[in-house]
């Protein structure tokens, strides 16, 4: 078992995960109400991964994610208001309503997107690492992606290039065991991901993604390694998605019992139980943090509701950069 952090830090981790959980649950409601449209992929169950890894990153580090990126965006400190407004398609959203749920960007926080193409963020992260190296900075790039991407050529090309060129990239594979309806075991000839990576000469390990403390611990060590050795590293976080793949998924490929089983092993339950057992937290703390998270989401929703729409005349704006080099 990983060492317990201070009460303050432990409550911070819990609070971050609760903020994500509340945000995602509200998104599901808002989708049913028709306020959020398009494709919506929720992060319930996987909060420990984004929150744990984010502790190891510095403001100057770069992040690339997938279409299931609300959790990463929140843990990175993108204001919920700007996120929710984006999901509402409003001008006040982080991408002025152009991107929506799958395409969250916040340049100031070095959040280089949500990417809706499986594997699409991997080569980008390699490039971010390359750029940091060439610019002579000691920032690193962190790349989050699902295990489904491992079957893509882009994954293997990216692993090789990052290792060959000694690039400071931390790859975080969120192995939630299903790529839409395809179980990991039905898509890989070698299901031991760390064994699969042997050919790339890259430091790689697995961690229980349901244990935020363990994720943080491993991410800190690997991030420091990447930062100081200027070499890539790989972290497989074993996790589970509690909700459907997207809002259209009838989930014929897994049983309710399996989902319930994992829900009982969830990252929020795990941390709460441990903190209570160690007398680091009381029920009132949990209730208070949950209330604060809900209030923050309420505020984000009313902000988004009151937001404005981009003028249609601005449709083609930003197709090209507004400034020349």
């Amino acid at each position: 078992m990983t060492l317990l952090p201070t009460r303050e830090h432990a409550l911070h981790l819990l609070s971050e995960m609760l903020r994500i959980r509340c945000f995602e649950d509200r998104c599901a409601e808002l989708y049913s109400a028709g306020k959020i449209r398009g494709f919506l992929h929720l992060y319930n169950g996987e909060e420990g991964v984004a929150v744990g890894v984010m502790q190891a990153l510095r403001p100057e580090d770069d992040i690339a994610g997938t279409y299931r990126e609300h959790g990463h965006a929140i843990a990175r400190g993108i204001p919920m208001r700007s996120l929710m407004a984006e999901l509402y398609g409003k001008l006040e959203g982080c991408c002025r309503g152009r991107g929506g749920s799958m395409h969250i960007f916040d340049r100031e926080r070095r959040f280089f997107g949500g990417n809706a193409i499986v594997g699409g963020g991997l080569p980008l992260a390699v490039g971010l690492g390359l750029g940091e190296r060439l610019m002579g900075r000691d920032a690193i790039a962190a790349c989050f992606f699902g295990e489904g991407a491992v079957a893509e050529g882009e994954f293997h090309e990216s692993m090789n290039l990052a290792s060959l060129w000694h690039l400071p990239v931390l790859f975080i594979c969120e192995n939630n065991q299903y790529a839409m309806g395809t179980a990991w075991s039905r898509s890989e000839a070698e299901t031991d991901l760390i064994a699969k990576l042997c050919g790339y000469h890259m430091r790689a390990e697995s961690v229980d993604g349901m244990d935020v403390l363990a994720v943080e611990d491993r991410a800190r060590e690997l991030a420091e390694y990447v930062r100081h050795q200027r070499m890539p590293a790989f972290l497989e976080a074993r996790t589970y998605r509690f909700r459907a793949h997207s809002m259209y998924d009838p989930q014929l490929y897994r049983s309710k019992a399996e989902v319930e089983d994992w829900e009982n092993k969830g990252p929020l339950i795990g941390l709460t139980q441990r903190l209570k057992a160690e007398n680091l937290m009381a029920e009132e703390d949990f209730i208070r943090l949950q209330r604060m998270a809900n209030e923050e989401v309420d505020d984000a929703v009313s902000f988004a509701e009151q937001g404005s729409l981009e003028r249609v005349e601005e449709l083609t704006r930003f197709t090209y950069a507004e400034q020349t080099a």
Partner: peptide, 16 residues
Amino acid sequence: GVEVPVPYAKHMEEAA
């Protein structure tokens, strides 16, 4: 189609 990557917001997508 208007020559722009298709945006998310409904009114903008319709315009595209």
